[in-house]
């Protein structure tokens, strides 16, 4: 057997069907994605899963091609087993099981949130950062302690990205809405008071979304966009600052689909310089949902014997970050 291992990673928790290949040397050799974009409204789980099923074979072929590998070179398959939307997860798992059976190679279930953290650690070289993970489905502030990624703060209702996307649609902005919201906000002048809800180390976005949507017809949309972003990012920045003060970690890692927001980056880098912590933003192709992070985390799990037989390779739509034993960091 070749001494270098190649792990194929399948991501399919929500919009994105992703396929990436990671080597045991810590390189992401390819990272290909195909995104389901709803014609109107938010994500429809069944339609998304149908999209994933139709794009799976092609995406895998491109990923192999870009990595300069053949399917015969793959030594293990990893897949996002949760958290995420059930139909989407099951499609990805089916694809992964098929590859595993054809190749007769190990199958490794990976926690999607853990994968975001692990690929961030890999590309930034930070061993033990505080992680701010903000996306359409997750708003989590986490740090490693005692064998697991502990949750120091999170949303009590909807995710940051969900709040911003929904409001952008409310203003009639097309997908992706957040960059357009930021452009509008750059022209905003007047701050409009909106519900700022921090409870302990947690945040809540549902009241903010309701209030901002209600004001959409009455206020200048530039001012409203500015105010919404200031409040939404201000809340996550505040709980991040509390977590960094509490955990005393020397670095902060920003990841997830909302990580590309320049405004949020500015706020968090400000906090980092105040607390003498290094600030890193995971590059967009690895910060958004992707197969590369699943492949790399799959490799880490494989080393610890975390593969499972096909018969018991269940998905878990509600798999919490802090349930996973992070054996490779013991």
């Amino acid at each position: 057997m070749n001494s270098v291992q190649y792990v194929l990673g399948i991501e399919s928790t929500a919009h994105t069907f992703g396929c990436g290949i990671a080597s045991s040397e810590g390189k992401i050799l390819s990272n290909v994605k195909s995104e389901y974009i709803p014609t109107s409204g938010g994500i429809h789980p069944r339609e998304a899963s149908q999209h994933h099923a139709s794009k799976a074979a092609g995406t895998i072929a491109v990923a192999l091609n870009e990595a300069g590998l053949r399917i015969g070179d793959i030594t293990a398959v990893a897949f996002s087993a949760g958290p995420g939307l059930g139909p989407c997860l099951r499609t990805g798992a089916t694809v992964a099981r098929t590859v595993s059976l054809i190749r007769k190679c190990p199958l490794v279930p990976v926690n999607h949130c853990v994968a975001h953290i692990e690929v961030g650690r890999l590309v930034t070289g930070e061993d033990d950062p505080l992680v701010v993970y903000v996306s359409g489905g997750n708003t989590i502030i986490s740090a490693y302690s005692g064998g697991r990624y502990r949750v120091f703060g999170e949303t009590l209702d909807i995710a940051l990205g969900n709040c911003l996307d929904t409001f952008a649609r409310h203003l009639g902005l097309s997908h992706p809405g957040v960059p357009k919201l930021e452009q509008l906000a750059d022209e905003g002048r007047r701050f409009i008071p909106l519900p700022y809800v921090v409870k302990g180390q947690d945040v809540s976005y549902s009241g903010l979304l309701t209030m901002a949507s209600r004001l959409a017809g009455e206020c200048d949309r530039r001012d409203l966009s500015l105010s919404l972003l200031e409040v939404a990012y201000g809340m996550v920045a505040e709980v991040t600052e509390r977590a960094i003060a509490q955990t005393e970690k020397g670095a902060l890692l920003l990841t997830g689909g909302v990580a590309r927001s320049k405004r949020l980056q500015r706020a968090l880098s400000f906090i980092c310089s105040d607390h003498s912590a290094r600030f890193h933003v995971v590059p967009p192709d690895l910060a958004g949902d992707n197969g590369g992070m699943i492949a790399w985390t799959g490799y880490l799990g494989l080393r610890e014997g975390m593969s499972v037989p096909v018969e018991s390779s269940y998905v878990n739509p509600n798999w919490r970050l802090d349930e996973v034993e992070v054996l490779w960091r013991r």
């Binding site: 701050f191 700022y196 500015l226 409040v231």
Partner: peptide, 13 residues
Amino acid sequence: KKGYRNPDLDLHI
């Protein structure tokens, strides 16, 4: 004062 947030919001909070 928190430099990372809007001055009006900051003062209010």
